[in-house]
Simulated assay, not measured.
Amino acid sequence: MKKVKIEKALTFIEPGPLLLLTTFDGQKNNVMPLSWAMPLDFDGRFALCTGPWNYSFGALRKQKECVLCVPGPALLKTAVKLGMESGEDTDKFKKFSLRTLPASQVKAPLLADCAACVECRVERFWQAYGIFVLKALQAWENPSCADGRMVHAVGDGTFRADGEKFNLRRLMKAKLPPGL
């Protein structure tokens, strides 16, 4: 082992996968990349962290709903470029030719080229840390995203894509909720 700067700790634990968060502020849609998110339980609760430096933050606070979209490796460069623009003055959907589909439970759109999308409503907001607790309302999976890999942000401008998959469901059967 060798000592490293404390800032590097993030790169060891960054949860991923990289997400694209879509919001609707009452007038227009927006999308931003997000890697600070995590599941909280098997009942469709998630936490994510953002703040007023992101244009989507205002829409999330105001409308209390969003869509979490899971892009595959094919959308990685677009996802990074989305984060370099502000929805305040850029129509990111138009600029980056993002294909959308209507959501069924929220006003923010689904991203048609993502592997999965989860429509969510905000249950709580912890202002001190910019943490939103979300409740999943509807989940969507895109069978045409054949790659099936998820991208994970390392936290230092680099990313990793899932590789080999290990199926140990048999060993964990007693711990998995029905239907999963």
Rank of each mutant, 00 (worst) to 15 (best):
M1R: 11
M1Q: 03
K2I: 12
K5P: 01
E7T: 15
E7A: 09
E7P: 00
E7H: 11
E7G: 11
L10C: 01
T11M: 06
F12C: 10
F12M: 12
E14L: 03
P15R: 11
P15T: 14
G16P: 14
G16H: 10
L20R: 12
L21I: 14
L21E: 08
T23G: 02
T23Y: 05
G26D: 03
Q27E: 15
N29S: 06
P33D: 10
L34P: 03
L34M: 15
A37I: 04
A37F: 11
M38F: 08
P39G: 14
F42L: 05
D43A: 13
C49D: 00
T50Q: 12
T50W: 06
T50S: 13
T50F: 03
T50A: 03
P52S: 15
Y55W: 13
S56A: 15
G58E: 12
A59E: 03
L60N: 03
P71K: 12
P71F: 10
G72N: 09
P73D: 07
P73F: 08
A74H: 15
L75W: 05
L75D: 07
L75P: 02
K77R: 14
A79K: 10
A79H: 10
G83Y: 05
G83K: 07
E85Q: 09
S86A: 09
D89H: 14
K92Q: 12
F93N: 10
K94D: 01
F96C: 04
F96G: 04
S97G: 00
R99E: 08
S104D: 10
S104H: 10
Q105G: 01
V106S: 00
K107W: 01
A108M: 09
A112I: 06
C114Y: 11
A116L: 07
C117E: 08
V118L: 03
E119F: 01
R124Y: 09
R124P: 00
W126K: 02
W126T: 09
Q127L: 08
A128C: 01
I131E: 02
F132D: 02
F132C: 07
K135E: 11
L137Q: 13
L137N: 01
Q138F: 04
A139C: 14
W140Q: 04
W140V: 00
N142C: 06
S144P: 00
S144M: 10
A146T: 15
D147S: 14
G148S: 06
G148N: 07
G148E: 05
R149S: 10
R149F: 03
A153G: 10
V154Q: 00
G155I: 07
D156M: 06
D156R: 10
T158E: 03
T158Y: 14
R160M: 14
G163V: 11
L168K: 07
M172G: 02
K173C: 02
A174W: 04
A174P: 00
L176E: 07
P177A: 12
